[in-house]
Write a protein that binds this DNA or RNA. Structure first.
Lengths: 114, 114
DNA sequence: CTCATCTACAACCATTTGGTTGTACGTTAT
DNA sequence: ATAACGTACAACCAAATGGTTGTAGATGAG
């Protein structure tokens, strides 16, 4: 179980990254192609430094990478970050479906018995 | 856009709720049927009150509901909360696929031109 | 070369978060 | 009736978060 701690904090960072409207918007914008940090900053009513921090959070979460392009830094979306998040939620979905399956079984048994 | 602010803070709460390993574990446990708060608390190396707070966060996020059962309070998972989260990530997936589609188009055009 | 631009990062601040302990209250069991 | 249990909630604390301003280093343009 100790091994999983890495995965857990990785998931912490992933969902934490999604838990902010500005960051979700950044992900949307850069999924559509690369954007410089200041290019991004232009869209939000906050300082350049604040946007820079948001990008850093996304980067640590593996949702985004930066690529130096001359004097600017292009931010682009990282597909596998998104996939890891979807994977976890799918796992929960599976638990739900299993439970639904068991309930169906129980109902069937009740029908068979009498 | 003002209308969406509600949806945005709703999403904030949703992903924030997922951004903690203990809370993700609680969701897993109660997806498998109802559990009392103290029943849950037994599984974690933290105080009852701490677990109670985690449940409150999940409840505010719409991922979980409580149902009074005698002197205990049964916590059970709320399916649509999970679905709303999956929906957002699917939306992002769609953006990615659209982008992939456009790239494919561009490549096709390049092949047609010469 | 010089200046404007883009980025990085530190220092600071208010608020939120994740945890604690303590107290109080309703419900069940003896 | 009394004790034990399950819950709720307040008060407190340390650390993290989301924002600010200010300073400094690279890089590109004129």
């Amino acid at each position: 179980m100790v091994v999983d701690e890495l995965r857990e904090t990785e998931l912490d960072r992933l969902f934490q990254a999604f838990a902010d409207a500005t960051r979700r918007d950044i992900v949307r914008r850069v999924s559509d192609g690369g954007l410089s940090v200041s290019g991004l900053a232009g869209h939000y009513a906050m300082s350049f430094a604040a946007v820079q921090k948001h990008v850093a959070v996304l980067e640590r979460a593996g949702l985004v990478s930066k690529e130096r392009r001359g004097r600017e830094q292009l931010v682009h979306a990282n597909r596998d970050g998104l996939d890891r998040a979807r994977q976890l939620l799918d796992e929960y979905e599976a638990i739900w479906r299993q439970r639904a399956g068991r309930i169906a079984e129980i109902l069937l048994e009740d029908e068979e018995k009498p």
